[in-house]
Design a protein around this nucleic acid. Structure first.
Lengths: 160, 160
DNA sequence: TCAAAATAGTTGCATATGCAACCAATGACA
DNA sequence: TGTCATTGGTTGCATATGCAACTATTTTGA
């Protein structure tokens, strides 16, 4: 995954190792796999489940819709993650009396415990990862991610 | 997706928006979606298909195994991508006479054309994305990706 | 006040994915 | 040379995913 200078400046070929979206994707997969070690084997959670729990752990209660917005997940993914979490009683819900389409979601006691267990492990993985970056580099990384995200977003809105 | 400073330094909570792996994942999805506009609708290709084609477009012929190594894909994904590409005659293969377990893969004429069509579009998307970064920032990005990838890799090897 | 549009959330279906098991060919070596 | 381990590649199965269609409820506005 070390970047090579592209051989073909004319743009007829595409050297994957010098194609930023590819590099980003490979990196992301690897990082994601690393973080999953904090919740996958031990707790049998999937990434989406964990994200929903993370959203709730951070701020409760929430509706499914609010979780969508906060996690950038699609409503189907959220709905399914919630139903897995309900089955395992990591999350509980009551219908909103004001708007009966809505369900108010909370972590259960077990859910809270699980969450409190996972958070330090996830943070520890992140910290181990970031040890290779200086404080300045971490700030750079944050800045670059923001810029690129906003730009990608803009291009998608324009083009789609 | 703008970074917020984490409220909870003690590490009991996890603010998703300040959690690097989450940020990376959201960014990657968005970028991936943007790039997919270069091959998905128009050519009905999936990401894995496109990656296999990209590997071959870059250097032919290759065996499935070589494609795995060059694309960081798993052999099942590669095998399935190849079979889709064979069906659509974008790729052809002959058995290696020296080692009859191996198949030698090449883009067909149509495959080449498709590839040559897609590359500039994909590069154009990448270029549009990167317009928001200065040359220095692009170099930073490359460097950060390399460092993080190597580190994640190392941690996975140690831990797993 | 009632029909049409919008919203919250779920479901069906076809397809993709991950994992382990698998087959076939080759290599290692007693 | 015959057995065992390894390697290249494929397949079965259970599960996940994406999309569009769907139900139920609420909102809009003539």
């Amino acid at each position: 995954m070390t970047r090579k200078t592209s051989v073909d400046g004319a743009g007829r070929r595409l050297e994957l190792d010098s194609f930023m979206p590819y590099r980003l994707s490979v990196l992301q997969q690897e990082v994601s796999r690393l973080i999953a070690t904090a919740y996958a084997e031990k707790y049998g959670l999937m990434r989406h489940d964990w994200r929903v729990m993370a959203a709730l752990g951070n701020d409760q209660p929430l509706t499914a819709n609010e979780i969508c917005r906060r996690t950038n997940m699609d409503k189907v993914q959220v709905s399914r993650a919630i139903s897995r979490l309900l089955n395992r009683t990591l999350v509980a819900r009551v219908q909103d009396t004001g708007d009966r389409r809505r369900w108010i979601l909370r972590l259960t006691r077990t859910g809270e415990e699980t969450y409190r267990d996972i958070v330090p492990a996830a943070r520890a993985r992140e910290a181990e990862l970031l040890t290779v970056l200086s404080p300045a580099e971490r700030r750079q990384l944050d800045g670059l991610i923001d810029k690129l995200y906003r730009r990608a977003n803009q291009l998608l809105r324009e083009g789609g």
